[in-house]
Amino acid sequence: MVTAEFKKQVIAKLVEAESISGLSSKRYAVKIGINPSQWSRLKAGEIDGVLADSRFITLARLNNLHTGDQQEWKTVETSTYKYIRSLLQTCKEECISIMLADLADIGKTYAAKLYARETKNAVYIDCSQVKSKQLFVRELAKQFGSNHTSKYSEVYNDLVFYLNSLHNAIIIVDEAGDLRYDAFLELKALWNATEGNIGWFMLGADGLKATINRSIANKKVGYTEIFRRYGSKFRQITPQGREALDDFKREQVAQVIEANAPAGSDVQKLVKASGFSLTNAYNMIRVMNNRSRA
């Protein structure tokens, strides 16, 4: 059962997120997928009969909200976290474009998502969920609270107009290697239409680098231009060499485990058991924390 307390917690978290987003109340309502009048009623303290109970659960899930006695994950400023934050801030402040292609499971996505949640006029897009041109542009428009349900040309033009009106905004394009060809070309078009007014940060792993290099080698239209617009190079944080890479991963995993594992845990034992994988470390700690609360 969804309690009144749960609803209040969800609303409080969303109000806090709205204040950070830089969006108007109407645009923020569009972003989270509810009617602006409903959002106004919720913020005014009217919680019964405004939304279905199931909708509150969906809002909490889609917006990554921790409520009640759930243990929040403690963010650790690992080397990856600090490097990506610095690149994102540079992109945003200088309205430039940067591309980072590095190994999976080093905390890239976590750092990018958190930056977007904590930063005004910053939007994060997971391209693995919106691979086509239409899905990508409509989702981007929604995240900025813009018209995203009308005819495609109107959605695109409204989005471009709004983006060019913003000050120091950034769009984070994660899992970019999953985009279909038509979406890559539209990404180039959006860059052209907002040049100098928006910061862009493209993020991916080996697949992104391989796709771009292969497409440039095969002279596929658009890829050379995209690569140039993002600085003509792939940034990375991980060091070269197996030993140096293992040390890098081990240090990050140890930091995360030490900050989030239950008190009294054998950190080094957990680090070894994780195989220096942040994903494995997260799953182990989640299970341990659930057991400690049981």
Rank of each mutant, 00 (worst) to 15 (best):
E195D: 06
I125H: 03
E77C: 02
G107F: 07
A116W: 05
D174K: 07
D158W: 08
V155K: 13
D102I: 05
E118I: 00
S153C: 03
R85L: 10
V137S: 11
R138Q: 13
W191P: 01
L190D: 01
I106T: 09
V155C: 06
E186Y: 02
N197Q: 13
L159T: 03
N157K: 13
Y181L: 06
L87T: 08
E72V: 12
K92L: 13
S128H: 04
K133V: 05
K142W: 06
Y162N: 11
C95W: 01
N164K: 02
E154M: 12
I171T: 04
L163C: 04
I198S: 01
S153W: 00
K113A: 03
N121D: 10
E195Q: 07
T119I: 04
I171K: 08
Q143W: 07
K82I: 14
F144M: 09
K108A: 09
A111V: 12
I125G: 00
V130N: 13
D178M: 03
T90P: 00
T80Q: 14
R180P: 05
Y152I: 12
Q70D: 15
K108C: 06
R138H: 06
I84D: 10
L159N: 00
A176E: 08
K108M: 07
F144V: 05
T149M: 08
G196K: 08
T194A: 00
K133D: 04
S165V: 03
W191N: 02
K113Y: 01
F201C: 09
K108H: 07
D105T: 04
L163D: 06
R117W: 06
L179M: 14
Q89R: 07
F201V: 06
I198R: 11
C95K: 12
Y181R: 09
S132W: 11
R180T: 14
L114F: 03
R85T: 02
C95R: 12
T109F: 03
Q129G: 15
Q134M: 05
D105F: 04
K82E: 15
D102E: 08
T119M: 05
I96D: 00
V123I: 11
N168Q: 15
S150N: 13
K188G: 08
A112D: 09
Y162L: 15
